[in-house]
């Protein structure tokens, strides 16, 4: 299980939990498990999210490995100038 930190407004879809646990070993599995467990997150996940894994931000990276003790933070998909 990895702990996944969600940003504040997503918590309305996770019964108010800021941090949820999912069984996942990769970026993609985190998103799939989140969407299954919390269908309210699905629209945001489909629009795109970034994910910070141990401080490094990934935008799309399905196979990026996640260790059980990794810090995983879901972030909005980022664009720049």
């Amino acid at each position: 299980m990895v702990k996944v930190l969600l940003w504040g407004s997503l918590r309305t879809h996770t019964d108010g939990q800021a941090e949820v646990e999912v069984e996942a070993r990769t970026f993609k599995e985190v998103l799939d498990r989140l969407a299954e467990a919390y269908p309210g997150l699905r629209p945001q996940i489909e629009r795109g999210v970034s994910m910070a894994i141990d401080g490094r931000i990934y935008r799309e990276a399905w196979f990026t490995e996640i260790k059980p003790d990794s810090e995983v933070v879901v972030m909005p998909y980022m664009t720049g100038g």
């Binding site: 940003w7 504040g8 407004s9 309305t12 629209p43 945001q44």
Partner: peptide
């Protein structure tokens, strides 16, 4: 978007919270 709580004006399209 679904991120906007009910009761907001129609022009409000997105809401987010961090911290």
């Amino acid at each position: 978007l679904e991120s906007v709580p009910a009761g907001m004006g129609a022009n409000v399209t997105h809401h987010c919270e961090f911290g």
